[in-house]
Amino acid sequence: MIQVTNLSKSFDELQAVKNLSFSIKKGEIFGLLGPNGAGKSTTINMMSTILSSDDGAILIDGNDIKKTPTICKTLIGVVPQEISLYDEFTAYENLLFWGELYKIPSKELKNRIATILELIGLSDRKNDLIKTYSGGMKRRINIASAILHNPKVLFMDEPTVGVDPQSRNRIFEIVESLNSQGMTIVYTTHYMEEVERLCNRIAIIDDGKIVAQGTQTELQKESNVKETIEITFQTIASNQVAILKEAFPSLIQNNQSITVACDANKDLSTIISICNTAKLQIEDLKLNKVNLETIFLNLTGKQLRD
C-alpha cells in the first residue's frame, strides 16, 4: 500500500530524515516509534503530501505523491498531532465542513457523519460546540474528521497526546475498528505500550534514521537484549556511573538508579562484580522482561520519552 524509498529531508543545517526506506502492506497497522524530534512528524508530513522531500520517493497505492498529489490526498486521511478543529463550530458542523472538502455528496456525507459519530461514541454531543468538549472528546472528533472520506490509508500522528486513560482506550478501539474494516494505518507515537497493543509491524526511528523494523517478535528475536536490570543504590557518584558505563554503554541513570539492557544470564554477575569494585551498595535490584522500550534503549542509548 505504501512504498517509501530513500527519503531525505533537511531544514537548513538540520537533516531531519536520512535516507529512510520502508514499505507498509495493505490492512496493516504500522507503527513509527521514536522519541520527540526523531523525524516521525516530518516523515508523516512528506507522506501526506504537504511537505516535499529533498530526495527519495513515496508511492501510495501505486501513485507517486510528487506526480499525483491530488489523487494521493483522496487516498489518505491524516489525524494531526494538534487538535485541528474549529472551536466555534459544533462537532457536526466541523465534520460537515471537513467532509465537504472531499466533495462527498451531501446525503452520503450526512450518513457517513452519523456512522462515524456512532463509532466514536459522540452522537449525543454532535450539536455541542467543540470548545465545550473535553480533551479526549476533541481527540475523537479529530480522528472522525480524517476518516469521513473513507481513506485507504490513515496517518495518525501521536493521536493520544494529553488524553486520559479512558479516552486513550476508546481511541485504541476506534483504531482497531477502522483497521478491521480494511483501513491501513500508520501510527506514530513515543508510547511503547500503544505500539505493542496496536501495531502489526514497527519501524524504530531515531535521529532521522530507521534503526530497526519488523514485527515485535522479529525485533525481540533480532535483539541481543533479553532483559533489563534496574538497580537502585544507596548513593551513586558520577565517577561510579562512569565505571559502569565503560562495561555497559547503553546504561541509563535515573537519580540513584541505573537501568541496563542486557542478557541477565550472561551479564548479571558482571554487573554485581563491577558494583562491588566500585564500592556501590545495592539497595534494590529488579529484572524486567525485554520490551520495545528495552530494544529502543539498547539500539539508541536513549529512552523513548527523552
Binding site: 491530488t70 490526498k73 483522496t74 494531526p80 487538535i83 485541528s84 478543529l85 471537513w98 466533495k103 480524517a146
Partner: peptide, 10 residues
C-alpha cells in the same frame, strides 16, 4: 493547526 489540516485535504 487547521491550516495544516486544510492542506491535507484535496
Amino acid at each position: 493547526g487547521t491550516l495544516k489540516r486544510l492542506l491535507y485535504s484535496p
